[in-house]
């Protein structure tokens, strides 16, 4: 009886990976219309490939993928630009405040620098930590603290969250490469394959 249960579970589970095996070409894929007009952008503004990172500053997997994104930016400095959508998960109690801090830093043109610090210090995202990071970046302390305490950008975080939720994403990280979804902490190779496919499409 027990063996039957194990076998049944195993057989059911083997059905799950099947839909991931087919390789899709750029013309066959669905592209999500992610709007980055109000989102920060890093890199060549004329780059043909845009990677939108959907992330949570307290998510360990979002931190795990940062070296991969750095590698991509080094490999494709003119071909790829990076953008960011805020998606703090409710299971991470310090995430929303950290995202607020990044937006308060954005108000003083230091979004990307604050983003790097936050991912490097994922276990220290309390209010005092965030103020210390702002000081490290040379931000104007009073206006940063006021921005953080008043929750000036909570509505922007909510807007990003609502937009991403409508695309069916519930976990982080997620990436849209010219609208093509890559979910989870993907290896460099997975990004490279899509980027090269998009660059071929751009050149043809």
């Amino acid at each position: 009886m027990f063996l039957r249960v194990v076998l049944s579970v195993f057989l059911i589970l083997t059905l799950f990976p099947l839909n991931g095996f087919a390789k899709k070409k750029s013309k066959d894929v669905f592209r999500f219309p992610v709007d980055i007009k109000e989102s920060p952008v890093q890199g060549n503004p004329k780059a043909p490939v845009t990677i939108v990172e959907v992330s949570d500053f307290q998510c360990p997997f979002c931190g795990m993928v940062q070296p991969t994104l750095k590698q991509i930016q080094e490999r494709y400095p003119n071909e790829v630009k990076l953008s960011f959508k805020h998606f703090p998960l409710s299971m991470h109690p310090d995430a929303e405040l950290a995202h607020s801090a990044s937006l308060c830093a954005a108000g003083q043109d230091k979004f990307w620098e604050m983003r790097s610090i936050l991912f490097e210090n994922q276990r220290a995202l309390k209010r005092d930590d965030l103020i210390r990071y702002a000081n490290q970046l040379g931000l104007e302390a009073e206006s940063f603290t006021k921005c953080l305490d008043e929750g000036k950008y909570l509505s922007k975080i909510e807007e990003d969250r609502e937009e991403i939720l409508q695309y069916g994403i519930q976990g982080t990280p997620a990436f849209y490469v010219n609208g093509r979804l890559l979910s989870g902490a993907q290896p460099y190779g997975a990004f490279e394959e899509i980027i090269e496919d998009e660059l071929k499409r751009f050149k043809s």
Binding site: F61, G171, T172, P173, G184, A185, P187
Partner: peptide, 26 residues
């Protein structure tokens, strides 16, 4: 979480061959 997150964890232990990582993750 996305299954790729656990796949990245399994890979980080550098123990299983590439063929086994995906089925283990699922």
């Amino acid at each position: 979480s996305p299954v790729e997150n656990f796949k990245a964890v399994v890979e980080s232990y550098q123990f299983f061959s590439a063929l086994l990582v995906k089925p283990i993750s699922y």
